[in-house]
């Protein structure tokens, strides 16, 4: 019966978070556009996308940590440290090419991620405690590195500051980098052994160990990924905002977690995908940018984000519990 299979197709599509998010996005956009038609202007759209480019890079790192049953609260501090380091390198050694600067940022980020990873994987310290500690350690190191000063726009080279704004085929380099990261990790998640092993560890650590997945290695890898991506984000952050400040990216861990939770990533581990995270980031970006349209001051941004996370979290939990119940019923026959 074609009718039945069609309804099944619809139901199956809507059971996926990605589809729900798309629909929600459209539902959200209609009243916003009616109220303020210029919201969907190409200029505003590119502003939103560029704002979200750095977040999606960080959120993908956070995604892998949450996927493996952990959480990384230190992302904001890693961004601040690498951003400050890149800004200072750019100030002292202007001859260093921008491409190399991004690589240095990723290297520093990887180093900080390694610290987290070793403490979690081999020190057996819970991720929440490790990253709560390193969050303040890395932030403190940022202050020590900069000695409390800033790196301002005119102390940096033009080519570094211009990097996020330069366009190629009408799309900014910043967005190209974000797209590249999305595609790369989409492939990594679905088609590589380590990518699948992260899902396995998150879904059922005991079962994964029995089939030969090394839990310590996976825990190290996820923090390494998160650190490296935060390093990249940090080097881009300094360029985009044309300054390196000690307080930069404070509270960014919340936004990264928000993007993941919105994208259907489950805190009990093992569920979620890169496309969901990207859509979750986009959703967050639209909501944040729409606040002025509904005459809500920017001071309410924190509140709204917290509320969104809470609702998405409840939604995830309820749908997860429903799934488990259905599975149990099926097994009973």
């Amino acid at each position: 019966m074609p009718d039945n299979s069609f309804s099944q197709f619809v139901r199956r599509t809507f059971a996926r978070r990605e589809a729900t998010l798309m629909v929600l996005l459209v539902v959200l956009l209609v009243p916003i556009t009616v109220r303020s038609p210029q919201f969907l202007s190409p200029k505003n759209i590119s502003t939103i996308l560029n704002d979200m480019a750095i977040l999606v890079i960080v959120a993908i790192g956070q995604f892998y940590v949450i996927l493996s049953n952990g959480i990384d609260l230190s992302v904001g501090s890693v961004i601040a440290f690498t951003g400050m380091a890149c800004g200072m390198i750019n100030e002292s050694f202007p001859q260093v090419p921008v491409g190399l600067l991004l690589l240095v940022g990723m290297g520093i980020g990887a180093g900080l991620g390694l610290v987290n990873g070793v403490l979690v994987a081999y020190g057996k310290i819970p991720p929440i405690i490790t990253t709560l500690g390193t969050m303040s350690i890395f932030r403190g190191m940022t202050f020590l590195l900069s000695k409390g000063t800033w790196v301002t726009a005119h102390e940096m080279t033009d080519s570094y500051i211009a990097l996020p704004r330069t366009t190629f085929l009408g799309i900014s380099y910043l967005l190209w980098i974000a797209l590249f990261v999305i595609v790369l990790f989409y492939y990594f998640s679905r088609n590589t052994r380590t990518g699948r092993e992260i899902y396995a560890i998150g879904g059922n650590p005991t079962a994964a160990k029995f089939v030969g997945v090394s839990e310590s290695r996976i825990r190290l890898v996820v923090f390494l990924i998160s650190g490296t991506l935060c390093g990249l984000a940090g080097s881009l952050w300094t360029a985009r905002y044309a300054s390196a400040v000690n307080e930069m990216a404070t509270g960014f861990e919340m936004q990264a977690v928000a993007a993941c939770v919105l994208g259907g990533v489950n805190f009990s581990g093992g569920a979620g995908g890169i496309i969901g995270v990207a859509l979750g980031t986009l959703f967050l970006g639209v909501v944040t940018n729409a606040l002025p349209v509904i005459y809500l001051s920017v001071f309410w941004q924190t509140f709204v984000q917290g509320l969104i996370v809470l609702m998405a979290l409840a939604l995830n939990t309820i749908s997860d519990q429903r799934k488990t119940r259905k599975l149990l019923e099926q097994r009973r026959g």
């Binding site: 919340m254 509140f303 979290l313």
Partner: peptide, 11 residues
């Protein structure tokens, strides 16, 4: 951890 991270921002 997730709930109090959310309420941290709400409060």
């Amino acid at each position: 951890i997730a709930v109090t991270l959310a309420t941290q921002n709400i409060y």
